[in-house]
Amino acid sequence: TRVETATETAWISLVTALHLVLGLSAVLGLLLLRWQFPAHYRRLRHALW
């Protein structure tokens, strides 16, 4: 049971790290898009909202 718990903890930390990385890359990508294509971003936002 001790090994299982350790594996579970490792998986949880791995998944958390993955989610953090994905979230950060998504935010960075959005910022980059907004910085590179302001007109396109505004049009996209206008279409979405």
Rank of each mutant, 00 (worst) to 15 (best):
Y41F: 13
A26G: 15
T1L: 14
H40E: 06
L48H: 00
A17W: 14
W35Q: 05
G29M: 08
A17T: 10
E8Y: 07
W11G: 08
Q36P: 03
L24V: 15
A17K: 04
H46L: 08
E8W: 05
L44H: 03
T5K: 00
A26W: 15
T5F: 04
H40W: 08
R43L: 06
L30K: 00
Q36D: 00
R45F: 04
L32Y: 12
V15T: 12
A6S: 15
L33M: 06
L24E: 01
T16Y: 06
T5H: 00
G23Y: 03
T9M: 11
G23R: 00
L18I: 13
L18K: 04
R2F: 10
P38Y: 10
L48R: 01
I12G: 08
H46V: 04
W35P: 11
H40I: 08
E4R: 06
S13F: 14
L14V: 09
W49Q: 00
A10T: 13
T9N: 11
A10E: 10
L31D: 01
H40Y: 12
G23V: 14
L28K: 02
A39I: 07
A26P: 06
V21D: 03
L30W: 07
F37P: 01
W35N: 08
L14K: 07
H19R: 03
Q36T: 09
E4A: 11
P38H: 06
L30T: 04
E8Q: 06
H19Q: 14
A17I: 11
E4M: 15
L14G: 07
F37K: 05
L14Q: 08
A17M: 10
T9G: 13
L18G: 07
L48P: 00
A6Q: 12
A26C: 15
L31V: 11
A47S: 06
G23I: 15
V3T: 01
A47P: 03
L32N: 00
W49M: 04
A10F: 10
L33I: 10
H19A: 15
V21N: 01
T9H: 14
W35K: 15
A39N: 12
L48V: 06
A6H: 05
R43W: 13
S25K: 02
V3N: 00
L20K: 00
H19Y: 12
W49F: 00
W35C: 11
R42G: 09
H40G: 11
L48Y: 03
E4D: 05
L33F: 12
V15K: 09
V27N: 01
L33Y: 07
L32R: 02
I12P: 12
A6L: 10
V3S: 01
H46K: 04
L31E: 01
H46R: 06
V21F: 15
H19W: 15
L22S: 06
R34N: 03
L30Y: 07
G29V: 15
V27T: 07
R43C: 08
L22W: 05
H40L: 09
Y41D: 02
V15I: 10
F37Y: 15
T5C: 01
T1E: 06
L22I: 11
A6V: 05
R34M: 13
T5M: 04
L33Q: 00
S25T: 13
F37W: 11
L28S: 13
V27F: 11
I12K: 13
S25Q: 04
L33K: 01
L14E: 05
V27G: 09
H19D: 03
Q36F: 07
T1K: 11
H19G: 14
L32A: 15
V21S: 05
L14W: 12
L28H: 01
R45M: 08
V3H: 00
T7A: 07
V21E: 02
R43P: 03
T16P: 04
A6F: 04
A26Y: 03
A6G: 14
R42V: 05
F37L: 11
A10I: 13
H19M: 13
L28A: 14
A6P: 04
L30F: 11
R34E: 01
G29T: 13
W35E: 03
T1R: 11
R2C: 06
A39L: 11
Q36Y: 11
L32S: 06
G29S: 10
V21W: 03
E4V: 13
V21A: 06
W11K: 09
A10W: 15
R43G: 07
I12V: 13
L31R: 02
G23N: 02
R45Y: 05
T9Y: 11
L20S: 08
L30Q: 01
S25N: 05
T7L: 10
W11R: 06
W11Q: 08
A26L: 15
L20Y: 05
H19E: 09
L32C: 15
S13D: 04
T9S: 10
R34C: 13
L33W: 10
A10S: 14
I12E: 06
L48G: 01
W49D: 00
L22Y: 02
T9I: 13
L44V: 11
A17R: 03
A26R: 02
L22Q: 01
W49G: 01
T9D: 08
H40K: 15
A47R: 09
H46C: 12
W11E: 08
A6T: 14
I12Y: 13
V21R: 00
L20G: 13
W11C: 08
G29P: 03
Q36E: 03
A39R: 14
S13M: 06
I12H: 12
E8S: 10
A10D: 15
R42C: 05
L20P: 03
R2W: 11
L20A: 15
H46Y: 14
A17D: 02
S13V: 07
E8L: 06
T9K: 14
P38W: 06
L44F: 14
L20N: 00
R45A: 06
L31A: 14
W35S: 08
W49V: 02
V21K: 01
H19P: 09
S13A: 11
A10R: 07
R43S: 10
L28T: 14
A10L: 13
G23F: 15
L14A: 07
R45L: 06
T9E: 10
L20I: 10
T7V: 13
L28Y: 04
T7G: 08
R2H: 10
R2I: 13
S25D: 03
T5R: 00
L18S: 05
A47G: 05
L33A: 05
A47L: 05
G29E: 00
T7W: 08
H19N: 14
H46G: 12
L48M: 13
Q36I: 07
W11T: 10
L30C: 07
R42P: 04
E4Q: 08
R34V: 08
L30S: 06
L44E: 00
G23A: 15
S13I: 06
H46F: 08
L48I: 12
V21Y: 04
P38F: 06
A10M: 10
V15R: 07
G23E: 02
G29A: 13
T1A: 11
G23M: 15
T16F: 15
L14F: 14
L33G: 02
T9F: 11
P38T: 07
A10N: 09
V15S: 08
V15A: 08
P38C: 08
E4H: 07
L44K: 02
G29H: 00
L28W: 10
